[in-house]
Amino acid sequence: MPELLMGLSLGLGAGVMPGALLTLVITASLRGGFRAGVRLACVPLLSDLPVVLLAVTAVGALPEALLRVLSVCGGLYVVYLGVETLREARTALPPRPGEDAPSSAREILRGVVVNLLNPHPWLFWIAVGSPVFLTAWDRAPAYALGFAGAFYLVLVGSKVALAGAVGAGRNRLTPRGYRLLLGASGVLLAAVGVALIARGLAPRAYS
């Protein structure tokens, strides 16, 4: 079931990728501990449903040739993210919290707004997630649901694990460990991007 493995790999890369939501998760964990970080880590489960529905509906109406183009472009985008993550991993430092400590409800609302306004989920589901999801759905709905489930399981789970590491003690998340984690996710993202490019170029990939 390659869709399941692809979902796990993409979920891990997206889960630890530097960005606004990851910063909010770490900041909340530093301020309020593990439980505060978990609330922010679960934000994609609240905010991504309209993104997924709109992206899958739009891509589902496209002809096969455009699906191939989307897959190749999405693969190039994922490779780019991997390379950028590797470059940042050389000097990256764990984010530090700000001065304000908003309430839990305010933090969650801010996380939802940030995620909806973030172009990465939209770009991912239009260029990467939807072509994979629709191709898997044509084979069997269980494969498509397995891809989406694996993606969000690891995306949220990796953020929860990071929140646990930060909440358990600030000294456990060292700059070196953070850089190694980012470097590994960068390599994984680049490899998945190459696989998506190959899928888009392969004959009868969407038949």
Rank of each mutant, 00 (worst) to 15 (best):
A105S: 15
L66G: 01
A163R: 03
P2C: 01
R176K: 05
L10P: 02
T91K: 02
A55F: 07
L189S: 08
W122H: 14
V154F: 07
L123T: 10
G200S: 03
G183T: 03
A198T: 06
G60K: 04
L76F: 05
L54P: 04
A202T: 10
S158R: 00
L93H: 06
G33H: 02
A89W: 00
A20R: 14
M17W: 00
R68F: 04
V114Y: 12
L5E: 02
L53C: 12
L22V: 15
P18A: 11
G82K: 05
L67S: 06
L45Q: 03
G186L: 06
A28H: 07
R31G: 04
D48N: 13
G7M: 06
V38W: 06
A142E: 13
W125T: 08
G7A: 12
V166M: 00
E3R: 03
L5Y: 08
L153H: 10
G75E: 04
G177Q: 08
T135E: 14
P121L: 09
S47R: 08
K159N: 03
V69R: 01
V114L: 12
L201N: 07
V166A: 02
L62A: 11
L173K: 05
Y77H: 07
A202Y: 01
R139F: 09
P141L: 07
L76P: 01
S29P: 03
G129R: 06
G183Q: 06
R68N: 11
S158H: 06
